[in-house]
Design a protein around this nucleic acid. Structure first.
Lengths: 196, 196
DNA sequence: GTCTATAAAACGATAGAC
DNA sequence: GTCTATCGTTTTATAGAC
């Protein structure tokens, strides 16, 4: 007989977040009900409220956690002492590698920003801006050193990030190209687009 | 006294589509109720069903109409006789100009694809693919003629479109750069990224 | 900590009067 | 063609038993 009641506080919390992440990515925050999340986890809807005060907080914590991960992992890998060209290559390869490894998180981080209430939106937006600022700094340094030839560092930043994040719309592990090959193809395009 | 009843078939239909477009873009299809759309138009919810059989069809017709516009306008402007370089420049400038002029349509065409039921999704997706194929053809021709130096025409297609569509996330008419300047900045980046 | 049960509100869609 | 009224369902969130 399967147990239908009992204490599972250690595992139910993460399972709720995993289910919410998967369902929000597939159907969108507004289209997913708390009952669907509960069913996916294997508990009744009321039990979810032992782990989150409401649905909005559940979304916010997913997006906030994703941005925290992004900045933490990036900080551990980045080096401030590289020349602009090497710094840019490092950023491009990092961005692709990090993002293709977390397709659901990346998808909701982009698609569900508007589902956040204003205060939550502002928090997440600040972190996203912080991430973009690193790339803009690299491009600006390369522009001033003469290594890069771009018309506008801010626009180039947004253009490069849009191009790189687009990988997630088609890349699937196990396809005809390895991750390293994909990184190299995109790095070649970025390099040619901005390097003098 | 404002009239509260009467016949307005000529204008109510377009007003419903305009309101739905605006609200879907702002809050997302699933988060917008028929009552909200009706309120924005200035009619009662029941009246909407004189113009659309259901909410899903309303979304489908918006997305379908946008893709039809895109392909129709593009067909009128495109020329099959240009050399790869000129054809590519024409595509880049067209894409940016068309998309920044229709921010709400572009936004829902991308964000609400998943809100379409399978048959509707397939229809819209086919048109999107058709649009991408023109760019892929230009890049493939340039690759074969030796005008372009890219690793993979399909990936370059997706990379260029992702980069160009990203303009919509930040461009606003009346900002510090004119549309023509923005087009030129992006064309410079695309040109350098793919031209041999 | 999870269950069952339910409160209170909102939803998509329809019926019938005018 | 639009209105009012409503049906039947689903929603988020809570209360209280275990």
């Amino acid at each position: 007989m399967a147990r239908t009641q009992g204490s599972h506080s250690d595992i139910t919390g993460p399972r709720i977040r995993a289910a919410a992440l998967k369902l929000f990515a597939k159907d969108g925050y507004a289209a997913v009900s708390m009952r669907q999340i509960a069913k996916d986890v294997g508990v009744q809807a009321g039990a979810l409220y032992n782990y989150t005060p409401d649905k909005q907080t559940l979304l916010y914590e997913l997006l906030r956690g994703h941005m925290d991960d992004l900045l933490t992992v990036r900080e551990a890998e980045a080096s401030g002492t590289l020349a602009p060209l090497e710094a840019l290559e490092g950023f491009v390869r990092f961005h692709i590698g990090f993002h293709v490894g977390r397709p659901d998180e990346v998808f909701i981080a982009y698609m569900e920003l508007r589902s956040l209430e204003p205060e939550n939106f502002a928090q997440v937006e600040k972190l996203r801006r912080q991430y973009e600022d690193e790339l803009e700094g690299i491009l600006q340094r390369g522009l001033e050193s003469g290594d890069f030839a771009i018309d506008d560092a801010k626009i180039a930043t947004l253009a490069v990030i849009a191009m790189l994040t687009g990988v997630n719309t088609w890349y699937r592990a196990g396809g005809r190209l390895s991750l390293e090959q994909v990184e190299t193809i995109y790095w070649n395009m970025v390099k040619r687009a901005v390097v003098a």
